[in-house]
Write a protein that binds this DNA or RNA. Structure first.
Length: 216
DNA sequence: CCTTGGATGTACT
DNA sequence: GTACATCCAAGGG
């Protein structure tokens, strides 16, 4: 047998992100998101993502143009766009396309492949398969918050990196409408891997359960 | 398994 | 004021 070689995985290059957002979204399935934020290493294999098309996409945060919140989306590709939502959760995207455009891929779910003990400390009582099952859970597992907004994920030694995973066969990729999106319900820009326990449960866009109808 | 409703920052009408 | 790229606890079947 040959000698053992420790391979240093190089992050996906910036040009990976400088492509149509749907291509990037599909390409991210199976890739490994690595975070050293908080001082401990956690790695997640991505199993579910959604594409958002910037100013042309009514479901995108960028649809109404730049704002203080979404400005990272208008910057160069290969950076993290992190936003705060519902008064308590953070969600993370990866910016795609050239600077000046604003498309991005929302990272919805993944499987923890390294640092499960770290996540267990961050999420007491939560089951392993739920550690990154949903976009806000994923950021919690990686210790990603507002401070990570704008972080470059292409650098060799940064705290947030995306590494190529083992290849994903095309026929294991599924697609459908985006979750929790009230508009563009016919746009199948949610992508996930078939038969993955970490994929977040499907909810029809726009039908928000439990919010009660208008008071009468 | 399912459903309901509360928490509550930010953008927008 | 309302909607939102959400999650979680609690209660019923």
């Amino acid at each position: 047998m040959g000698q053992r070689v420790d391979v240093v995985l190089t992050p996906l290059p910036r040009q990976f992100y400088d492509r149509p957002v749907v291509d990037v979204a599909r390409g991210l399935l199976g890739a490994v998101l690595e975070s050293a934020l908080g001082g401990e290493l956690v790695r997640i294999r991505l199993t579910e993502v959604e594409a958002y098309g910037g100013m042309a996409d009514p479901a995108s945060h960028a649809f109404r143009g730049p704002s203080a919140r979404n400005r990272t989306m208008f910057g160069p590709p290969g950076r993290a766009y992190v936003y705060f939502t519902y008064g308590m959760h953070f969600c993370m995207n990866l910016v795609t396309g050239a600077a000046g455009t604003a498309s991005a891929v929302l990272l919805r779910a993944g499987t923890v492949i390294d640092g499960a003990d770290v996540v267990a400390r961050r999420r007491p009582g939560v089951r392993l398969r739920d550690y990154a099952r949903g976009p806000a859970r994923l950021t919690k597992a990686l210790n990603v918050d507002r401070a990570a907004d704008g972080e470059d994920v292409c650098t060799a030694d940064g705290p947030l990196r995306v590494l190529p995973g083992v290849g994903v066969a095309d026929q294991t990729i599924r697609c459908g409408p985006r979750v929790g999106v009230a508009v563009a319900g016919d746009v199948p820009w949610r992508f996930w891997l078939a038969d993955e326990a970490s994929v977040s449960p499907y909810r029809p866009g726009g039908l928000r359960r439990g919010r009660g109808s208008t008071r009468v």
